[in-house]
Amino acid sequence: MKNKQLKITQNQAFWPVIIFLTIILFNTVMTRGEFLSISIVDGHFYGRIIDIFRNGGKLMILAAGMTMVLATGGTDISVGSVMAISGAIACSIIRGNLLPGLGGSVTAAILFAVCAGIICGLWNGFLVAQIKIQPIVATMILLVAGRGIAQLITSGKIITINSDAYYFINGGYILGLPFPLYIVLFLVGILLLFVHRTSFGLFLESIGCNSLASKFAGIKVNRYLLAIYTISGAFASVAGLIESAGIKGADCNNAGLNIELDAILAVAIGGTNLMGGRFSIFASVIGALIVQSITTTVLALGVPAAYIRVLKALLIIVICLSQSGKFKVLFGRKLESKKKEAVAL
């Protein structure tokens, strides 16, 4: 029995889940239960909780891909720009500005956008694995150039589109639940299966801890690096589709702006070591929900816009402290000595 308890608390996702639930609880109390209320309109569920899951979809997808990159000790700061490229390609095809021969097919638009994401990921992976450029520098190339490429595709304009099929990616409902949630479940589910049913996870952790020793143990380190940057790129392109479907168009300047930082934060909150090694995709997804729920909280509390960033920063500091092993030890010791004092008294 005690063993089981130990196992649950030692799981990497344990604390993120607790934090997430705390935030929900906090909001519920602050809004006197309104936060939890879910209304059904036209057979669709509406409510703040649903919003968190819908609006957090992009971030959950990005965080899942980012987890593996960070697990190898790398980083991918180009995901925001890849989102912009993906949205630009999809919208341009649907409008017929790009490849008019496709006749504005939404399916083709999605396929081309994801292919572009894969190519971006391959490029990042190539720079990191083959050319051995430091990951932050290698992906910075695309961070900067990516938005430029997106603007070339849209000729520097904001493209708006009119396609209900495309809107469905962000705004659609199946069985009353928002469609982005299904995309998250599908992508993260496949990824989790792949990581845990094959030895992919073990190899990634091994590479993250010690890539030279991993090579000596027979792991083709470069091949796996290439794979994870590619997955990260592909996932970013899907996130880009959700975002552009949400604003019903492509805005190359603002699509996915600074979202790479939120994604890295989500992974960090999930407890994955940013220097590489042990990782948990599930914990990162919860981390993404936490980041999203902070934003929702701030809005729900009606905090003036000027304070939002500061409040967010404070919440993040509290979360990071609660995740820090060293802090826990220090804090725990204080508590213990206080307890002892109390007993002595």
Partner: peptide, 26 residues
């Protein structure tokens, strides 16, 4: 630097080369 994977368990360290030999999917 070339042998141990410090943050992995003894079990994972032992299985690593055999796993690499068997390949990703087995």
């Amino acid at each position: 630097t070339e042998g141990i994977i410090g943050d992995l368990s003894i079990r994972d360290n032992m299985a690593l080369a055999l796993q690499a030999k068997k390949g990703l999917f087995k």
